[in-house]
């Protein structure tokens, strides 16, 4: 049996739409926050604790600890975008589709 279609005004009060908005905001904020911590953590280390970054990774190596940390920061922020896109493409878009179906439009 076909469910009753909701109007645009009704959908705004709909529980599914409300959870969708809440979830999206939470995820966006979470990822932004992680990225900011990651980045300003690194800048903070450069600004306030350079001696730490200048340590050698081993006795006979010229590589300082700052170099692998910089590379890891890059890899990690790329990983974050990958996780976000995976979430958005598989879960978020699904929920959006549910809400769209309810309203009866495309």
């Amino acid at each position: 049996m076909e469910k009753k279609k909701l109007s645009k005004a009704e959908i705004l009060e709909d529980e599914d739409f409300k959870t969708l908005v809440k979830k999206k905001n939470l995820v966006s904020m979470f990822f932004t926050f992680l990225e900011l911590i990651l980045y300003f953590g690194f800048v903070g280390l450069i600004a306030y604790n350079k001696p730490f970054l200048s340590q050698k990774i081993s006795e006979d190596s010229a590589i300082t600890i700052g170099i692998p940390i910089a590379v890891l920061t890059i890899l990690f922020s790329w990983l974050l975008t990958a996780i976000y896109i995976f979430w958005a493409n598989s879960y978020y878009d699904n929920d959006v589709k549910k809400v769209k179906d309810k309203i009866g439009g495309r």
Partner: peptide
Amino acid sequence: GELFKKVEYLYSQKFLEPGGLVTNPLDA
């Protein structure tokens, strides 16, 4: 490892430390 050793040999360890340009934390 070789590349960085060469850099350290030719210049100094300073050259390998990050953020040489950042002088003032607030500016950074």
